[in-house]
């Protein structure tokens, strides 16, 4: 087995840096998606861990009506502009973690293809008083084969339901971790992201073997 879990002095050379006079080599960027319904704490999550205060950008997303009201209908696709916020954590000068907070919307599935390309995984933020707001995100990440973790944001320390009930309502596979966290606290967000990274590491190891 050639996997060394502590490659301390190794420089990751996956960025194709053009040769030329010495210029600052860019860090290798990796990203985690923070998804969920409106107002569940995505921006709070990103801001709690980011070393910069969250920046916002606007992006086009394709939306697919999932036909809840009219199940017989073919799905309709529309394009809409959404605001996405993001932050970053510099691991060292050769590696930088980006966090992208992106909305989902009940009854509509966003197509996050551009966003998800190359992502390590996703944290799906859930408010237990309206669990179904995160269904589009869960559906999407399942289909995309992206490692994801459900993070139940404990507003005011209150968890409306126990985690088993949340798992039932979400109908996610047993190997999808469901964790409880508080979006306002860095340590709590860090721990939730570490669970996402564990999932990502599993996937990377499977891809290698």
């Amino acid at each position: 087995m050639d996997f060394d879990p502590y490659p301390d002095n190794r420089v990751v050379g996956t960025a194709r840096v053009p040769s030329g006079p010495q210029r600052t080599a860019p860090p290798v960027p990796v990203k985690i998606i923070v998804a969920g319904g409106f107002g569940v704490g995505k921006t709070t999550t990103v801001g709690a861990i980011s070393e910069i205060s969250p920046l916002t950008t606007e992006a086009e997303m394709t939306m697919e009506g999932v036909g809840v009201d009219d199940p017989g209908q073919a799905s309709s696709k529309t394009t809409t502009t959404i605001a996405m916020d993001f932050g970053c954590v510099t691991i060292d000068h050769t590696l930088k973690l980006y966090l992208f907070g992106t909305p989902g919307q009940t009854r509509f599935a966003f197509m996050w293809d551009d966003l998800v390309r190359g992502a390590l995984g996703a944290l799906v933020v859930v408010d237990t008083t309206r669990i179904d707001d995160c269904y589009p995100a869960v559906d999407y990440f399942e289909r995309a084969g992206l490692p994801f973790v459900v993070g139940v944001n404990t507003f005011n320390g209150q968890l409306g339901y126990n985690l088993d009930e949340v798992r039932w309502a979400l109908a996610v596979r047993d190997d999808v971790p469901i964790v409880q966290f508080d979006a306002r606290f860095r340590g709590s967000v860090r721990d939730a992201l570490l669970v996402v990274l564990d999932q990502a590491l599993d996937k990377a190891m499977k891809m290698r073997s």
């Binding site: 996997f3 990796v30 691991i91 570490l194 590491l201 990377a204």
Partner: peptide, 17 residues
């Protein structure tokens, strides 16, 4: 998709926060 070594470095970087 990032390789395991890169992910391990992110994990260790985050743990130190």
């Amino acid at each position: 998709f990032p390789d395991p070594e890169t992910i391990m470095r992110v994990i260790r970087g985050l743990r130190s926060i």
